[in-house]
Design a protein around this nucleic acid. Sequence first.
DNA 1: CCACTGCTTCGGCGCCAGCCGAAGTGTCCG
DNA 2: CGGACACTTCGGCTGGCGCCGAAGCAGTGG
Lengths: 247, 247
Amino acid sequence: MTHFASGITLATTANLIGDVARANILCALTGGRALTAGELALHAGVSASTTSGHLSKLLDAGLVTVVKQGRHRYFRLSGPRVADMLETLMGAADLGPTRHRPVGPRDEALRRARSCYDHMAGRFAVDLAERLQAGGFVVLSDEGGTVTEAGSALFGALGIEFQTDKANRRPLCRCCLDWSERRFHIGGRLGAALFAHAEREKWVVRVSGSRALRVTRAGETALAGGLVGSAPVALPQTRRRNVRVSA
Amino acid sequence: MTHFASGITLATTANLIGDVARANILCALTGGRALTAGELALHAGVSASTTSGHLSKLLDAGLVTVVKQGRHRYFRLSGPRVADMLETLMGAADLGPTRHRPVGPRDEALRRARSCYDHMAGRFAVDLAERLQAGGFVVLSDEGGTVTEAGSALFGALGIEFQTDKANRRPLCRCCLDWSERRFHIGGRLGAALFAHAEREKWVVRVSGSRALRVTRAGETALAGGLVGSAPVALPQTRRRNVRVSA
DNA sequence: CCACTGCTTCGGCGCCAGCCGAAGTGTCCG
DNA sequence: CGGACACTTCGGCTGGCGCCGAAGCAGTGG
């Protein structure tokens, strides 16, 4: 009778994500690193053959990409937009009257700090965002965020660089509603650059086989000082590596 | 083996939307108006009893709300966040290499102008957004939008009022990537206010039984003048108010 | 009181989507 | 070469879920 097309579009995408095995695969990839089909099978909790089928569907839909290397096939999310969509969907899980059921103590590590494709999430990321805001380095609002002049100076001094390419459609500083904390953390190009910096400086280290991040003492210190404490001196540009913020 | 909880969370939500009948129901509700169970059955293309089952699931999940009136039950999306999520999901449909297949001529009316819960979308909305931006009334960026002082003046003169309540978590001006046009339109509180104004001034009228909007001659005129034509105010070009670092 | 309408609940049916194991392809290694 | 490994394809099985029609339950109106 009416616009069925939209409904079908919606349903096919959602249906793809709506299978537990595929959802687990996507969640695993939300960690941001490329994983082999075998590893994904473990995460999904199903056999290799079944996983293979799922992966080809995800490929067809363009949600993931693959690169072949020797006898392995490495899978990735096809981009930050996909990761954002997934987190949106997660966040919408308990829009309902279901009272704010914390996700269970088993996920404590995840709630503390985790990677979200190419930026950080969890308590650590939320705290960091608030510190930066309190220091006047960024202005976070519901509709997004902007970097102040003081922020530009700070990030420059720290050697945190993000593409300023205006043509790049990707937000500089996207405010993600944190799935576990229900407060904002920093995504977008700035979020990616912050994550890269945090890994370089060993503020956080990845926990193998999980999205979880372990916050080091250096990380605690940096957070407590709102990043400023960790760079009392303007460090020479030794770190001007290719920062590679997404592509 | 690993964080299954997230995967299940993700899957249950997505699975709910992943059924064609339910997706059609949600799409219909994206029109923004409350509909009865019977009307939704028509939109979904399934029997009343089946529809009833779907609706109770959507209720349980908190995606829709219901209000009982006489022997009718009126259903609504439970909030703008749900609508945003649905459009996000729609937009992600063709992230893949599938070439930008236009949604088919049958949906021409929808592509032209439609309602998106409480704001407008489609070519009309996109054009309007660009007009407003060109006139210096709003600044639209990937990470959101802001209303300039000139914009505040214009909207005030037009009698367009939006809640300025800062405590309100809802974005003032959210940039939605238009699903059909793949350009930005204006959502958030400003988007809602613009839609209300457009309806009041009969720039657009709802097409019954559809999300589609018909653009009237008054609407064309208003658009051509960037809204200003209908309220000839002398506006100082006080742009560049907003600090935008990524410039 | 009864007839009509809108909606939900129930029982039963049928299909499809996901699952697995076995066999097939391609790659690396000794 | 032959064997180990990573992954895909194929065939067959099964359970769940979406579907419907019939019956039950309000609310409305004569």
